[in-house]
């Protein structure tokens, strides 16, 4: 990871010095273990702030919204796919960006690490294979692969699909991954089981909207849950309203979600709302052969019509 950090700094300094970009968006070291903070650098003298490690799971494409500057952005595989989605949706111009591509080996799931040890974690370090955890009176070495975010362990697009310069050689993509085992498990449930499963899943939700706001896809000027004229959804903790928020949010991501995991990662109460978006991702793949954010040359399935679109649901 050190090489990545050095290279990111080197590229950022060059871009800022040469005036190729006005700002570079990346990460700086966080104040608590396994958390880094998205930040920007506008002065080549400040690039030492930038770092890279397995705690850069926040999707930086989220920070491009409505910016006017020429931007250098550090992008791992999924960030790059979301940048592609922004370009396809005319949210940003490709020429406005210099993409510093990061071949990614997956992001660490701090909940998994916390669950693997007993006591508060004070320091976490990593190398290519292991994650070393130190806390009050304990030290433990964990296999990095086993403590990755679930979306990362299922990822088959680790290398940025679009970039102007890579910080390292491309990493091998994971082969033979079963991406949708959890979705199939839910698909197999009968309606009552599904209803109860979602009830349990969402029971801790506090409607802080961290999942929505961490998502680069959620850029509506006013979200449907915030509309008041007319008001579409109740704003209390009523379980139907909570569920309506989650389902509709997910539907808005159909054909656009890259399974970057930012939503799940952001949730303060540990809800895996990715099961919703993954179902839609699976449907888009199976029905339209579509994976979001892989190319700027094709229109997404939900804004095009093809005569051979599946229509067997119409009686």
């Amino acid at each position: 990871m050190l090489e990545y950090t050095d290279k990111i700094r080197e590229i950022a300094a060059r871009l800022l010095k040469e005036g190729t970009v006005e700002m570079v968006i990346g990460f700086r070291k966080g104040t608590v273990p396994m958390m880094n903070e998205p930040c920007f650098v506008t002065d080549a003298g400040d690039v030492d702030r930038l770092i890279w490690d397995g705690n850069c799971g926040v999707n930086l494409a989220n920070y491009l919204m409505d910016r006017k500057e020429k931007i250098g952005i550090v992008a791992k595989g999924c960030d790059a796919r979301n940048i592609v989605t922004h370009i396809v949706e005319n949210k940003i111009d490709r020429d406005q960006l210099f993409i510093i591509g990061v071949p990614c080996t997956g992001m660490i799931d701090r909940r998994k690490v916390a669950a693997a040890v007993d006591g508060e974690i004070l320091e976490v370090s990593e190398d290519g294979h292991n994650v070393s955890v130190r806390g009050q009176g304990f030290e433990k070495v964990l296999n990095r692969q086993e403590v990755l975010q679930q979306n990362c362990s299922l990822c088959i697009h680790r290398n940025p699909v679009i970039s102007d310069e890579l910080v390292a050689e491309e990493v091998p993509e994971q082969q033979g991954v079963d991406r949708y085992a959890d979705v199939r498990r839910i698909e197999a449930m009968d309606p009552e089981e599904k209803w109860n499963f979602f009830d349990d899943l969402l029971s801790e939700c506090i409607r802080c909207y961290a999942c929505r706001n961490a998502c680069p896809l959620c850029y509506c000027p006013t979200c449907f849950v915030d509309e008041s004229r007319p008001q579409w959804v109740g704003k209390s903790q009523d379980p139907i309203d909570v569920r309506t928020f989650h389902f509709l949010r997910a539907y808005h991501c159909a054909g656009r979600c890259t399974d970057c995991g930012a939503c799940e990662r952001a949730c303060p109460v540990g809800i895996n709302m990715r099961v919703f978006t993954k179902k839609l991702e699976k449907d888009c793949l199976e029905k339209f052969g579509w994976e979001a954010g892989l190319t700027t040359d094709a229109r997404p399935p939900l804004d095009t019509f093809r005569p051979d679109d599946p229509d067997d649901f119409i009686k």
Binding site: W195, G234, D238
Partner: peptide, 10 residues
């Protein structure tokens, strides 16, 4: 019975 809200549960 699902997705029916008669009165907010608060």
């Amino acid at each position: 019975t699902h997705f029916v809200k008669h009165e907010a549960k608060v």
